[in-house]
């Protein structure tokens, strides 16, 4: 699993990259009450705002970690936003995307680097 400075996790499954947010991010955001996902088939560029999540406190954007195409989104999440707090690394993934160059994943942090990053 890889981690971004935006507190997203990236996991490769077959030829797709699954994207979610870390436990640290979920904890910082507080209780999530709203999730808006992109449509499958959307072409995105790195740092595009692709997901809107809102906690009891504030709205935040989830950015596309890389250029690519959104292949599948977690349709169950908007009806059960609290899952982002309950199981951020598992059930509460946001979307799966196809990227051109899997080697680009190497630039992201591994788990120990991310742990240092969040201190």
């Amino acid at each position: 699993m890889k981690f971004t400075e935006e507190h997203e996790w990236l996991r490769v499954e077959d030829d797709l990259v699954i994207v979610g947010i870390t436990e640290h991010a979920a904890e910082q955001l507080g209780d999530i009450v709203f999730v808006e996902l992109p449509e499958a088939g959307t072409t995105v560029s790195k740092d595009d705002e692709v997901v809107v999540i809102e906690s009891v406190k504030a709205a935040s954007d989830i950015l596309a970690p890389l250029d690519g195409e959104i292949i599948e989104v977690n349709e169950a999440l908007p009806d059960n936003p609290g899952q982002v707090n309950d199981d951020p690394l598992g059930e509460a993934w946001f979307f799966k995307m196809k990227i051109e160059d899997m080697a680009a994943l190497d630039e992201f942090m591994d788990e120990s680097a991310y742990k240092k990053f969040i201190g």
Binding site: G30, D31, V33, N85
Partner: peptide, 9 residues
């Protein structure tokens, strides 16, 4: 602003 229980609970 909140305790460990969290705002919702």
């Amino acid at each position: 602003v909140q305790y460990p229980l969290g705002v919702l609970k």
